[in-house]
Design a protein around this nucleic acid. Structure first.
Lengths: 145, 145
DNA sequence: GTTCCTGCAAAAGCTTTGCAGAAGA
DNA sequence: TCTTCTGCAAAGCTTTTGCAGGAAC
């Protein structure tokens, strides 16, 4: 049991390392742990959440490092920066494109699939589109009750 | 000529007044001017731009009032708050839904039409959707050259 | 008279910058 | 050795809050 978990963890860490190396980012302990957190917790965490979650296992971690790391990840398209509120940025592992719904009542963020078909003759003809952020706001079905 | 412009302005101010009254917002001079600015300049201004543009004609205007006013406008769905960067909010008169493209090179923001058809059986079934913000990022055709 | 609005100053909160020491190539 | 990375402290910016005077109803 212990061994299995051990093996599993090693494999994951190797995968994170490879991901970072492919992006030309030196796979330091801090960066691997932040990437691991983003992979394990797909809850669109902000800097504070990541920092507080990792502090127990790396007490000398600084927020500056979290900021630096996330900025590097965004630049390399490993993660997506979500500007849902204007107060703070949230981060999302870059996977398949999807929309985000923010409930004004409970504050929860819901993922949803969306078809974003842009007409080739649209205003964006000839543009290079790197990121597609779709953010809806309203009230979720739970809070509507 | 002068008269025409005069009449025109009066009509507009009346229109702004009516808009605000319908939204249950007292049509003060400051609020009318801010609404007028948003109507005349559809360039997704931030607080600073609005404040600096209006200062010459109302020297005692404070940024707090701009913030208060925009917050009231957003709450009443008169304007839309755009969180394109996480550094500052931008504001957009609420018209027909459209997407925003931000060029990472020149920083310009382009409007574009988009069809946002959400499946009724999607994850958002039963949700009340108030705002739809679509923000694309990349490089515009001009900067690609 | 009571409520709402404005604007100044201060505070709060997120993010960036400068820099020195540490780690890695 | 030289470059890159980390983390502390300070600074920078946008936004919010507290509050007193003024305006509107």
């Amino acid at each position: 049991m212990y061994e299995e978990r051990g093996i599993c963890m090693v494999n994951n860490i190797d995968f994170y390392k490879k991901t970072l190396e492919q992006a030309n980012i030196r796979p330091t302990f801090q960066r691997i742990k932040i990437l691991e957190y983003l992979n394990d917790y797909r809850t669109h965490p902000n800097v504070d959440e990541i920092y507080n979650a990792l502090c127990p296992i790396m007490p000398t971690l600084s927020k500056t490092t979290v900021y630096n790391t996330l900025k590097a990840f965004v630049k390399s398209n490993i993660v997506n920066e979500l500007n849902i509120e204007n107060t703070e940025a949230r981060y999302d592992l870059h996977t398949h494109p999807h929309g985000h719904f923010k409930c004004k009542e409970c504050g929860k963020i819901f993922d949803f699939d969306i078809n974003m078909n842009i007409n080739n003759d649209s205003e964006l003809k000839g543009f290079k589109i790197d990121n597609r952020n779709v953010i809806f706001e309203g009230i979720c079905s739970n809070c509507l009750k």
